[in-house]
Computed example of a mutant assay.
Amino acid sequence: MTTREPEVRAKEIYRGVSGVPEPFEIAFACKVADCEVAEKKIHRRFNAYRSNKAREFFIIPVEIAKKVIISVCQEVNKMFGYYTDELIVIENQITDSLEDCADDPPEVVMLSINSIVSSPLKTSLLSDEQKARVEIIAEIFANIFRDTSDAWIMDFSRDHNPETEIYIWEHIAMAFLKIEQVKFLSEEQKKEAFGILLMRSMTSASKVLEQFKLKTFSRKAAKEILREYKLDPRPLVVRQLA
Rank of each mutant, 00 (worst) to 15 (best):
1 M>H: 06
4 R>A: 15
4 R>I: 14
5 E>P: 01
7 E>K: 01
8 V>A: 09
9 R>C: 10
10 A>W: 04
10 A>P: 08
10 A>D: 04
12 E>D: 13
13 I>A: 04
13 I>N: 05
16 G>Q: 13
16 G>K: 10
19 G>A: 06
19 G>N: 02
19 G>E: 04
21 P>F: 05
23 P>W: 06
23 P>M: 08
24 F>K: 00
28 F>P: 08
29 A>Q: 02
30 C>W: 02
33 A>K: 08
33 A>V: 08
34 D>K: 14
38 A>Q: 01
39 E>D: 10
40 K>F: 00
42 I>K: 01
43 H>F: 09
43 H>L: 07
43 H>C: 08
43 H>R: 12
47 N>S: 14
50 R>W: 03
51 S>K: 15
56 E>G: 04
56 E>F: 01
57 F>V: 14
58 F>K: 03
59 I>H: 06
60 I>Q: 03
60 I>T: 01
63 E>Q: 13
64 I>R: 03
65 A>T: 14
66 K>G: 00
69 I>H: 04
70 I>R: 13
71 S>L: 01
72 V>T: 07
75 E>A: 00
77 N>Y: 03
79 M>A: 11
80 F>Q: 02
80 F>N: 12
82 Y>S: 12
83 Y>V: 07
84 T>H: 06
88 I>W: 01
89 V>L: 10
90 I>E: 00
90 I>F: 02
91 E>P: 03
92 N>Q: 04
94 I>P: 01
97 S>D: 09
99 E>R: 15
99 E>M: 13
100 D>I: 12
102 A>S: 15
103 D>N: 11
103 D>Y: 14
104 D>W: 13
105 P>L: 15
113 I>R: 05
114 N>G: 12
115 S>F: 07
117 V>E: 10
120 P>M: 06
120 P>C: 06
121 L>Q: 05
121 L>G: 05
122 K>Q: 11
126 L>F: 07
127 S>F: 07
128 D>N: 07
128 D>Q: 11
130 Q>M: 11
131 K>M: 07
133 R>L: 14
133 R>Q: 15
134 V>A: 02
136 I>R: 10
137 I>R: 13
137 I>N: 09
138 A>S: 14
143 N>M: 11
145 F>M: 01
145 F>W: 10
146 R>L: 11
147 D>G: 04
151 A>Q: 13
154 M>E: 14
156 F>T: 01
156 F>Y: 11
157 S>K: 01
160 H>E: 11
161 N>Y: 13
163 E>P: 08
164 T>V: 06
164 T>N: 11
165 E>Q: 12
167 Y>T: 09
170 E>Y: 01
172 I>R: 03
173 A>Q: 04
175 A>K: 10
185 L>P: 09
191 K>S: 12
192 E>D: 07
192 E>C: 04
198 L>C: 05
201 S>M: 04
205 A>Y: 02
206 S>T: 10
207 K>R: 15
212 F>H: 04
214 L>S: 05
216 T>F: 13
216 T>S: 02
216 T>M: 14
220 K>G: 10
220 K>Y: 05
220 K>S: 11
222 A>G: 03
223 K>N: 09
227 R>K: 14
227 R>Q: 09
227 R>H: 10
228 E>W: 04
230 K>D: 09
232 D>P: 08
235 P>F: 03
236 L>H: 02
238 V>Q: 07
239 R>L: 13
241 L>P: 00
